[in-house]
Simulated assay, not measured.
Amino acid sequence: MTLGMRGVVYDAENHAVFLVRHTYVKGWHFPGGGVEPGESTEAALSRELVEEGNIEILERPVLRSFHFNRMASNRDHVAVYLITGFRQTHPHVPDREIAEARFFPLDALPDGTSDGTRRRIAEIFDNAPVSDEW
Results as ranks from 00 to 15, higher is better:
A12W: 14
N14A: 15
A16G: 01
L19C: 09
R21K: 10
H22V: 05
T23M: 06
Y24Q: 00
Y24V: 15
H29S: 00
G32W: 08
G32T: 11
G33T: 11
V35E: 08
P37T: 05
G38I: 03
E39M: 01
T41S: 08
E42T: 12
E42V: 14
A43W: 14
A43F: 01
A43C: 06
R47W: 12
R47K: 10
E51N: 12
E51S: 09
G53I: 05
G53F: 05
L58Y: 11
P61T: 10
V62M: 05
L63F: 07
S65V: 14
F68G: 02
R70T: 05
R70Y: 15
M71W: 15
S73F: 03
S73I: 02
N74A: 12
H77A: 15
L82E: 00
I83T: 04
H90F: 12
H90Y: 07
H92C: 06
V93N: 00
V93R: 13
V93S: 05
P94A: 08
P94M: 09
R96F: 12
I98P: 04
A99D: 14
A99V: 12
E100Q: 08
R102D: 05
F104A: 02
P105S: 09
P105Q: 02
L109D: 10
P110V: 07
G116Y: 02
G116A: 10
G116P: 09
R118F: 06
R119A: 12
R119M: 11
I121W: 00
A122W: 01
A122L: 04
E123R: 06
F125Q: 01
F125C: 05
E133Y: 11
